[in-house]
Amino acid sequence: MSTFFQQLLNGIQLGSIYALIALGYTMVYGIVRLINFAHGDFFMIGAYAAYGLYYALGRLFGAGNPGANYLVLFLLVLGGAMLAGGFAAVTANRVAYKPLRDKPRLSSLITAIGVSMFIEYFFSALPAIGPSFRGFPEVFPKTIIKIGTASVSNYVIIDVAVAATLMVVLTLLVKFSKVGKAMRAVSQDKEAAKLMGINIETIIGVTFLIGGAFAGVAGLLSGLTYPRIFPYMGILPGLKAFIAAVLGGIGNIPGAMLGSYIMGIAETYANAANSLIGEGIAFAILIVVLLIRPQGILGEKTADKI
């Protein structure tokens, strides 16, 4: 029983990383209806960008030394990760997804898989990056906070805070901003949106930019929390985040958050109960939930169009 609370904290930590990826995933899906398999790779690109930028800045300004302004450094690296993730997403959209917009959705899906494979293998083959594992720098000092017998690092608190902030920002953006309204219009009816004078491609581009930037943030925070990066690091978290997004009701922003924390916590308790089949238990929970609520926890039931 003494570990119950610690395990809850562990689950929240894991869920936060899923949430960061799932938010971007679910938003892109909500607007474009594309399972963007490459999203996990934008996450990886974000992590590498943050890694590279950190050391480049370190060479320029001697960052990482005690006395350097951690907050500025963190914000700079964060900006770099967001830019890189957003840029990768926009590029993928322009080059690979846009030409297929009017084609069956499944063509885009296969292309997305191709893009994902390409990014992974390319990074792994590129001599400058290579397949090796790299440690991720502690951009600012890590401290362990004790709560009774349980402990949690300040990084986890940042993860939760950032995930929550992003969720709120995204919800507000989609609900109230002009771009957000256009996004919703595109998501509901492309043709009608076009007739209302909305430039669909611009809106989709913006969607990918935001989604990619979110993936970049997730990459950075994941790098901080689990300091090991490599070209294939996006596959598993990407898959898990996608599942979390579906669990919460894909396209639904608070749902992605909720689904992620449920996944993270369920996985943690499942692993604590029996680590040999922990992974299987987590998937079984998912299947049961979906069988009871086929549209996901917060998803809306849509009627079949006739």
Partner: peptide, 9 residues
């Protein structure tokens, strides 16, 4: 990447 559930145990 997360081993905390097992390590806590």
């Amino acid at each position: 990447t997360d081993f905390k559930a097992q390590l806590t145990k």
